[in-house]
């Protein structure tokens, strides 16, 4: 025992962040509980907020049908990469600890409204959903499984792009995953890509844009280069709706913008048009 009595810790007042969610699009303050009960959709502007991969799977797969695969396929520190804030290997290990996930995409088989599918869901909380070698390998294996078991492929993307800490091998995952989804399509199977907020860089410029159908949710941001990079290049302000899913639909790159509550039914309906 110490020589003085430690004062009891004052009762914790929950932080504002724990109680309120600020909508990143319209700035509305929404009680956290209301936000999550509403599937992380802003009740004021209908922005479809970011959600974790497990929550997305729960919204997409029929209850109890998701069987995760390749959980042991994880990140690798090919370059012994280290930057100003430390070593990649340590940061990646900490991310695994914090998130409970071992890569930026969750893959597996599931039934979607009774239809067997190969399902991949990216998680922005894992290293910004970046495309690492483990991510690419999981996608390649998911494509193998889709072909072997004649399952339609459904991938939800959410990513800042390639994982620069894995250097050139992360860039090469763009080629690997693009070729892998091409094989699925060549096998006569549908590939439905849902680009969720945000999908950028090496992910939008590879498998995410290659769906037989490219879908998104309201007010998602999708692009190749980031807004600031473009503004710095062209020295002009960009329109406020630049790179939103709605903007991409107007320019011809998105088949449909689907509300989160309707997404599963929409995918199932499309798969039925395709004969599944």
């Amino acid at each position: 025992m110490g020589w003085y009595a430690k004062p009891a810790a004052p009762a914790k007042i929950p932080s504002a962040k724990a109680l309120w969610q600020t909508c990143p699009r319209c700035g509305a303050y929404v009680p956290r509980r209301e936000w999550t009960d509403n599937l992380s959709i802003c009740p004021r502007c209908n922005y479809h907020g970011r959600i974790g991969a497990r929550d997305r799977v729960a919204m997409t797969a029929d209850p109890g049908t998701f069987a995760e695969t390749d959980r042991d396929v994880s990140f690798s520190d090919h370059l012994s990469f280290s930057d100003a804030s430390g070593a990649y290997a340590e940061k990646a290990a900490a991310t695994v600890q914090k998130t409970g996930e071992t890569e930026s995409i969750l893959t597996g088989t599931a039934k979607l409204d009774g239809i067997p599918v190969a399902l991949g869901v990216m998680d922005f909380a894992f290293f910004g959903g970046s495309l690492g070698t483990g991510t690419g390998e999981r996608i390649a294996r998911l494509c193998d499984r889709a072909i072997a078991e004649r399952r339609p492929l459904v991938i939800f993307s959410a990513s800042g792009g390639a994982r620069m800490q894995e250097g050139i091998l992360s860039l090469m995952q763009m080629a690997k995953t693009s070729a892998a989804v091409r094989r699925v399509k060549d096998a006569g199977l549908p590939y439905i890509s849902v680009l969720t907020d945000p999908t950028y860089g090496g992910v939008s410029a590879s498998f995410a844009m290659l769906g037989d159908l490219n879908l998104t949710e309201p007010k998602s941001l999708i692009g190749f280069a980031g807004r600031r990079v473009i503004e710095n290049t062209i020295r002009q302000k960009l329109p406020p709706d630049f790179q939103t899913g709605e903007y991409l639909l107007d320019h011809g790159f998105i088949d449909s913008i689907v509300e989160r509550r309707d997404m599963k039914a929409f995918i199932a309906k499309m798969l039925r048009y395709f004969g599944f």
């Binding site: 763009m174 070729a179 290659l210």
Partner: peptide, 25 residues
Amino acid sequence: AYPGREAEERGQAEAIAKAIETMSA
């Protein structure tokens, strides 16, 4: 690849993705 407004509007991401896919096949 050029990071410009028109590049994005004409689908820079799609064009690169499709070029990679096309070459792979």
